[in-house]
């Protein structure tokens, strides 16, 4: 019996066909979403990951990371420093600022933190991800890039050192994004001077095993760092700089 009965005669045959087609669409849609989220299996392989992605992307996409428990066993750090000139003094390299630590401080005892407090950590996760996706020889090239190194030149060097153009392309995209973010952050942080260059590094460390919980603390574990070369500062629009100023100096 329906929970909310409707005073209506049973549907006619043509109406039943419409209901049946709609029902079939729902079943197919449900199966595709289930396969997308499920771990690898012969059925999933039969449909193919690319075929599934073309259906779910972008609206119905759900990241496997949100259900993958292995994604949360590491602690990450994103740090920025800059070459800044204040007044007429010589340009000086600032100290490293740990943006993830700042975010953690702001999130302390906050059960529903503002979304802005996850940005540095997300950057760290993505940058670590793209670095681990590169070959070891390619990773050695990254910190050697200089201010004068054009992105296209760096990309060419990375491609020459490995055979993973998609990983290199992802690296370039996230690296460019992090450069823009670091530049806007640096301009807000050291707003008394002109920011000429920025550099950032990301770290990752793994939580010590549960068996050693009484002796080993995460705070004592060293980060595995990936440093990125110095980059020319990105200046951004006035509105973008104002938005960063408002957050960083609040």
């Amino acid at each position: 019996m329906p929970d909310s009965p409707v005073d209506e005669a049973p549907p006619r045959p043509w109406q039943k066909w419409i209901v049946a087609v709609l029902g079939l669409l729902v079943v197919v849609h449900s199966i595709l979403l289930t396969l997308w989220l499920a771990p690898a299996s012969p059925i999933r392989d039969l449909v193919g990951s690319r075929g599934l992605a073309s259906y779910v992307d972008p609206y119905f996409e759900q990241s496997a990371d949100s259900v993958d428990p292995d994604a949360q066993y590491v602690d990450e750090s994103f740090q920025v420093r800059a070459l800044v000139q204040s007044n007429t003094a010589k340009p000086k390299v600032t100290h490293w600022v740990d943006l993830t630590a700042e975010e953690d401080h702001r999130m302390r005892f906050d059960l529903d933190p503002a979304r802005v407090h996850v940005i540095a950590r997300r950057l760290a996760t993505n940058l670590n991800g793209v670095m681990f996706a590169l070959d070891p020889q390619q990773r050695e090239i990254v910190p050697l890039s200089k201010v004068s190194t054009l992105p296209s030149k760096l990309q060419a060097r990375l491609n020459a050192a490995g055979s993973n153009p998609i990983a290199v392309q992802n690296f370039m995209a996230y690296s460019q994004m992090a450069t823009q973010f670091a530049s806007l952050y640096a301009a807000a942080k050291w707003n008394g001077g002109d920011v000429y260059q920025v550099q950032f590094k990301v770290g990752r460390r793994t939580v010590p095993p549960f068996a050693k919980r009484h002796t080993d603390k995460l705070a004592d574990v060293h980060y595995l760092w990936f440093a990125f070369g110095w980059r020319p500062a990105f200046h951004g629009s006035y509105d973008a700089r104002s938005a960063f100023n408002s957050y960083v100096n609040n």
Binding site: A114, R115, V116, A173, M177, Q180, F234, A240, F244, S246
Partner: peptide, 14 residues
């Protein structure tokens, strides 16, 4: 503004 507005332009590439 920092999260979704003018300040979020740096995410454009991705």
């Amino acid at each position: 503004s920092y999260t979704w507005g003018d300040g979020a332009g740096w995410t454009e590439t991705v």
